[in-house]
């Protein structure tokens, strides 16, 4: 029983990271109907920036904030320079650009920072276990950070003018433009936010899985699974899906398939969702007119 509780709690901790990345994916998907295959590599690159800043002598949280800002700017720039001309291109072109970005970010990370596996500091007390030994300090801290991120994203979209404008731009670009919203810039802001959220997820997961240029490949996969499970067009669904996938992954890894097949579990979840309920748990079923 102790083992089970432990697995569930640490599943929730990693699930929070999947939830953040899934949220970042869904934000871009909602606005542009693109799935950002480079999300993971961008987050890894941001995490390297954070590590460099920390090693340069900045305190953890200052480096953390600076990384968020840098990643935000990076996301905005990518949207403005690369994605904007692709707005009406066929799916193949947008997927191609994302794959190109994935390759570029992955090799830049390797080029600048090297391919050796690096440790990443945790800002939380990790020496002694908490809550009766069920969770480590880092798990608790990173869950808190992801919850704060998710809550602030929710409040931002729900209760600010800018958030409302961004939702309008994603929901109905033509009408949004008619009421004076600068739709292009809203998309760019969405990209910036997604890149920033990805960076936070990268910093939170790096102490657990260690930092190397391919760190996020598996995490991106779980986030895809989470986003699909919750419904790829639904942010709340994506967050819940991310948490659910985290728990499923941990329980499955511990009791069902062993750690060697954890990634395959993500594939199984994706296929299962597509077979059983393609729209996801909270998504709206898409009907195409014939």
């Amino acid at each position: 029983m102790d083992g089970l509780i432990h697995q569930i709690l640490s599943g929730i901790a990693t699930g929070g990271i999947y939830a953040s990345v899934a949220l970042a994916l869904v934000m871009i998907y909602q606005a542009t109907h693109h799935v950002n295959f480079a999300q993971g590599e961008m987050a890894t690159f941001s995490t390297y920036i954070a590590l460099t800043l920390i090693q340069a002598g900045l305190s953890y949280w200052v480096a953390f904030a600076a990384t968020f800002v840098i990643s935000f700017v990076m996301g905005v720039l990518i949207e403005r320079v690369l994605m904007r001309p692709m707005a009406n291109a066929p799916i193949l072109s947008s997927v191609g650009v994302f794959i190109g970005l994935l390759l570029i970010f992955s090799s830049i990370s390797g080029w600048i920072f090297g391919y050796t596996i690096k440790t990443f500091p945790s800002p939380f007390e990790t020496s002694k276990p908490l809550l009766g030994g069920y969770v480590s300090g880092h798990e608790l801290g990173s869950t808190a950070v992801t919850l704060v991120v998710l809550l602030s994203v929710y409040l931002f979209f729900r209760h600010t003018r800018l958030g409302l404008a961004m939702r309008a731009a994603a929901y109905n670009p033509a009408s949004a433009r008619l009421v004076g919203i600068r739709v292009g810039w809203m998309l760019a802001l969405g990209w910036g936010l997604a890149a920033g959220i990805g960076a936070i997820a990268g910093c939170m997961v790096a102490p657990i899985v260690f930092l190397d240029p391919n760190m996020m490949a598996g995490i991106l996969l779980y986030s895809f699974a989470g986003a699909l499970l919750g419904g790829i067009g639904n942010p709340l669904g994506a967050v819940l899906g991310g948490f659910a996938v985290g728990v499923i992954e941990n329980l499955g890894g511990a009791y069902l398939v062993g750690t060697e097949l954890k990634l395959t579990l993500a594939l199984v979840i994706i296929v299962a969702v597509l077979v059983v309920k393609p729209s996801g748990l909270l998504g709206k079923a898409v009907q195409s007119r014939v």
Partner: peptide, 29 residues
């Protein structure tokens, strides 16, 4: 079969997951 019933990106997603998972499956004991 499952992925192609839906349009566009779903196949890209599923096949990407397949590609990431392949080495792990091949290594399995």
């Amino acid at each position: 079969l499952p992925a192609l019933r839906l349009g566009g990106l779903y196949l890209a997603l599923t096949t990407f997951a397949l590609a990431v998972a392949t080495p792990q499956v091949l290594k399995h004991k």
